[in-house]
Nucleic acid binder design. Structure first.
Length: 970
RNA sequence: GCCGGGGUGGCGAAAUUGGCAGACGCGCCAGACUUAGGAUCUGGUACCGCAAGGUGUAGGGGUUCGAGUCCCCUCCCCGGCACCA
């Protein structure tokens, strides 16, 4: 390569200078309520990034996309007079960090510290304006102390079905509190990953492989800690509604939780006292049940299998057990199963139907048993065809009368019909449409104690323990086979020092190797924790005169918590990161997490009222964007119409949403509702879609538990969520080391500067879109920044940059004023709308306009620097300083109020209007801005070109849209 | 299979309630300034056509004075779920 290219402007000097200045001045530190410098008159804005795992490989250019979006918003909101909370931290526990440590042969604490330093350096070189005083690290004892504390809150509570919320376990009146705790130990078939040496949550298993590393996962029965997230299933669905999240993410969560309405039906096993309960969403097809299927692992199989069938059943069960989840899905195409030899009695028609075992029925869903209705279920159909089981039609697509008397199996249907229709061959249900048939059969079953209406969820309880070293130890000890909580005063519980922290591979956690740590002898005041109390005894209650000093030796829990534990609440810790008394101070929490005030318009633009000239500006849009009704779920079709209807006229809803869709809506819980007050929470959360059902679901769950227990002021953590798109490599492929297409931001910064990196990433397309990297694109944006620089600066004979003599204190002309004010308006509005690419293009138009202006009005340049500042903070700070300060200016530019535009300057006296003939533009005319329809039409008819085009034809119609166009129809 | 999101120049992309398709940038072409240009500035650049003009937003149909935008059907790409009873 040739010599180093000349820098188009001295970013290599400017950028470190201003980064050091911000650090020294703590420009982006935001005080909490009650702290020095806090201004209670300002509204708050909490803008959050998904904090990274500090991996060893560092950031690539895809990571900062979201960080840049939030940085621009944060800087902008600050200039609009908000108290902005914009923090960063490290999700440093968990598999990636530990895998890296094992690979490099170092202790994870060492590699984590190195990686954090590396990441932080990279983020700072990009010029991100975080409040580093609030930095958190999940592996810091001062942090995980509270993660453990929150776990104990969960452990110490239960979900009261009466109140539909978590309550201290003391309010539970049953005799076995351990059966209802939100954190409990259970023996269950779990996802065991031999390669990683740990169990994994369902959410961490993708296509039968571990999400981290892609290793095979098998089912294995193990004793594990579980969190009872299923108790919150309904609320986790319902309370999505008020959130301003992408519809896709809401649906993803909804589908993951998987609510379905149906019925439980009890069948008896012929000749034994046993019962089989099934779950079905189609109780109306009960008369068409011609056999039953149990999951291979179902406990009843052993009790009902006949002697003749025993060997075959055992063989089948063993074969199924050996299959990994992956094999089981791969082999899903071909149905398999074995008859148990037993029969069940259909409760409604008392028919004797065979009971089979087949692996297409899953133990984990419903009751692990089904009634099979082959005529109306694809899977049952396939199975029945393969094993020659009877198929009976009980739903007809069209109404048919007089079928009841017919022999039930006389007409075997030719194909499987899964839709809704009308009941046939179904006794009392005959003729009823499916919807009514479901209701009727459920009523009949309930009346006879044969079944009941039920709601079933796909969501499973959260498998919360891991057999790994690098995670939070459980604050739990075991005594006489019973678990109990450590006291609050014993936290944090540090992990033991271990020379060998690799997984054991046997399922026993590595912490078990630390014998001295595991053997635990509580001192007198640590004993006697009341296991039924959620509130741990205060230390002052613990000291009892003359009590024994040493208790019996007990053992510690040796599992650790999963990666997600720390990330479930980090946003709360940011609110009060240094609090050593509480996980977050009450005042700080309620200040930063509270919802917006009712008057959205006034609060989102405090500067407008102060300066009194803002008018109906961009800020009003911000208000409407965060309107919680705007992104309601499930409103297919003209949502604005039925929204209006539901609010202003309750009857409109009833009339307007007839038909099957209303039922679906009810199921989803998304029917029209009145606008709810904002649930509050983080004002803007930006991150990738990969956390749609992991972090975002877990965090909501923890948040709700803490809210129920009175520790938090809002029921939801994240009010508004935006997903940034994926950054592809220059070859259009996903960036990866193996493809060799990874771009390191440090290299881009070295060549073009951080401001160019920032502006390019924001200019390349919409925030949410997937987009490929292009170095040529960076070059283009770099040129734009250099042009900005040269608007103010020029090079002298000695090759030094000095203030350009073209910059003088004159008033901009009319055309310039229009560009200036249009730019203020558009950039502000575009930032509010997260449309950063169009904001930058407007600033390019500004620069193009002024590039050849000589002289150049100083005020114009100053305005440009103000609106460009959130995007290119280093360059603009430098020029702001060099252009000199005016009275009333603050420094740095980062704290200067956002400029105010004058709408009057944007209105043209005369406007150009296209004239169409039959929809095609044929001429353009200039008319006064307030010209009447008649005047415009007359002018259009007066055009010579139009006369040509309409010559000899009859003008049938003239459409005049003032301010837009004229269309003449001939 | 089901559920989302998409498909606009050579490329990245713009386009309030339906109202001049392609803003802005890259690339390319030409010019200016220059010892020089991988610097800078100016102009041009959807496609076909010398032009007048015609054609164009994945494809087909529809509504409308007017459709990238609304409705119906089809195709393709990306993401998610996937025997969920």
């Amino acid at each position: 390569m040739s010599t180093e290219r000349r820098k188009p402007y001295p970013f290599d000097y400017i950028e470190p200078k201003w980064q050091a200045y911000w650090e020294a001045q703590q420009t982006f530190h935001t005080p909490n309520p009650g702290e020095p410098g806090f201004d209670p008159a300002k509204p708050k804005y909490f803008v959050l990034d998904m904090f990274p795992y500090p991996s060893g490989t560092g950031l690539h250019v895809g990571h900062p996309v979201g960080y840049l979006a939030t940085d621009i918003i944060a800087r902008y909101k600050k200039t609009r007079g908000f108290n902005v909370l914009h923090p960063m931290g490290w999700d440093a526990f968990g598999l990636p960090a530990e895998q890296y440590a094992i690979k490099t042969g170092q202790h994870p604490a060492v590699t984590t510290a190195q990686n954090v330093a590396g990441f932080k350096g990279q983020l700072q070189r990009i010029g991100l304006g975080y409040d580093w005083q609030r930095e958190v690290n999940t592996t810091d004892p001062g942090y995980y102390r509270w993660t453990q504390w929150i776990f104990l809150q969960i452990y110490g509570s239960w979900f009261n079905p009466e109140t539909q919320r978590a309550e201290p376990i003391a309010t539970y009146k049953g005799d076995n509190p351990d059966s209802v705790r939100l954190a409990y130990v259970a023996e269950a078939a779990v996802n065991w990953c031999p390669e990683l040496g740990t169990v994994l949550a369902n959410e961490e298993v993708v296509d039968g492989k571990s999400e981290v590393g892609g290793f095979p996962v098998i089912r294995k029965p193990m004793r594990q800690w579980m969190l009872r997230i299923t108790a919150y299933a309904q609320r986790l669905i319902d309370e999505l509604e008020g959130l301003d999240w992408p519809i896709g993410i809401k649906l993803l969560q909804q589908n993951w939780i998987g609510r379905s309405e149906g019925a439980e039906v009890h069948f008896t096993v012929d000749g034994s006292g046993e019962n089989i309960t099934v779950f079905t969403t189609r109780p109306d097809t009960l008369y068409g049940a011609t056999y039953m299927v149990l999951a291979p692992e179902h406990g009843l199989v052993d009790r009902i299998v006949t002697e003749e069938q025993l060997a075959e059943i055992e063989a089948y069960r063993e074969k199924t057990a050996r299959k990994s989840d992956l094999e089981r899905t791969e082999l899903a195409k071909e149905k398999s199963g074995v008859w148990t030899g037993a029969f069940a009695i259909n409760p409604v028609n008392h028919e004797r139907i065979p009971i089979w075992v087949a692996d297409y029925v899953l133990l984990g869903y419903g009751t692990g048993a089904i009634m099979a209705v082959p005529a109306h279920d694809e899977r049952d159909w396939e199975f029945a065809r393969k094993f020659a089981l009877p198929i009976r039609e009980v739903v007809s697509e069209t109404p048919r009368l007089g079928f009841s008397g017919e022999s039930p199996c006389s007409a075997e249907p030719l194909e499987c019909f899964v839709g809704e229709g009308y009941a046939v061959h179904s006794g009392p249900l005959d003729g009823l449409p499916t919807f009514d048939a479901k209701a009727e059969i459920t009523r009949l079953l309930e009346a006879q104690g044969l079944g009941r209406k039920t709601i079933n969820f796909k969501l499973r309880d959260w498998l919360f323990s891991r057999q790994r070293y690098w995670g939070e130890p459980f604050p739990i000890i075991w005594e006489d086979g019973q678990h109990r909580a450590l006291r609050e005063t014993e936290l944090p519980l540090h992990p033991p020092e271990l020379a060998d922290f690799k997984p054991t591979g046997t399922g026993e956690p590595p912490l078990a190797r630390a014998h001295d740590w595991v053997q635990y002898r509580p001192t007198h005041h640590e004993r006697g924790t009341d296991r039924t109390s959620a509130v741990f005894p205060l230390p002052s209650l613990g000291v009892i005169e003359g009590a024994e000093m040493d208790g019996p030796v007990v053992t510690r829990e040796t599992n650790t918590m999963p990666q997600w534990a720390g990330s479930c609440w980090y946003y709360l810790r940011y609110c009060d990161a240094r609090n050593s008394e509480r996980f977050v101070g009450r005042e700080a929490e309620s200040y930063w997490m509270k919802g917006p005030l009712p008057a959205a318009g006034s609060q989102s633009d405090p500067t407008a009222t102060r300066l009194g000239t803002g008018g109906p500006s961009s800020a009003d849009r911000a208000g409407s964007q965060s309107d919680p009704t705007a992104t309601r779920l499930g409103t297919g079709g003209p949502s604005s119409v039925d929204r209006a209807g539901s609010q202003s006229d309750p009857t409109a809803t009833q009339l307007g949403t007839d038909g099957p869709s209303s039922a679906d809506r009810a199921v989803l819980g998304t029917g029209p509702r009145a606008t709810q007050p904002s649930p509050g929470g983080v004002d803007l959360y930006v991150g990738g879609t990969e956390h749609a059902v992991l972090h975002l679901l877990y965090a909501r769950f923890w948040h709700k538990v803490l809210y129920d227990l009175g520790h938090l002021s809002t029921p939801e953590p994240f009010q508004r969520l935006v997903n940034q798109g994926l950054m592809l490599g220059e070859d259009g492929q996903k960036m990866s080391k193996s493809r060799g297409n990874v771009i390191n931001p440090d290299d881009v910064i070295a060549e073009y500067g951080a401001d160019a990196l920032r502006c390019y990433e924001m200019f390349m397309g919409s925030l949410e879109a997937t987009k490929p990297w292009s170095m040529n694109g960076v070059e283009g944006v770099s040129r734009f920044l250099a042009r900005v620089w040269r608007l103010a600066m020029e090079e002298n004979q000695a090759g030094e940059w000095e203030l350009s003599p073209a910059v003088v204190d004159i008033a901009p002309d009319k055309a310039q004023l229009k560009v200036i004010h249009a730019t203020i308006k558009k950039v502000g509005e575009d930032i509010e709308a997260l449309s950063f690419n169009t904001a930058i293009s407007q600033m390019m138009i500004f620069v193009n306009t002024f590039t050849n202006a000589n002289p150049r009005p100083r005020t114009a340049l100053r305005t440009l620097l103000q609106v460009l500042n959130p995007f290119a903070p280093h360059l603009t700070e430098e020029l702001w300083e060099r252009l000199g300060f005016e009275e009333g200016d603050t420094r740095p530019l980062a704290t200067e109020p956002w400029p105010v535009y004058d709408p009057a300057l944007l209105i043209e006296d005369e406007i150009e209007m296209p004239i169409q003939v039959n929809g095609k533009v044929r001429d353009k005319i200039i008319v006064k801005k307030d010209a009447t329809k008649e005047e415009i039409e007359a002018a259009a008819r007066g055009s010579a070109k139009i006369a040509e085009w309409t010559a000899g034809k009859e003008i049938k119609k003239v459409v005049v849209v003032p301010g837009k166009l004229v269309n003449i129809v001939v």
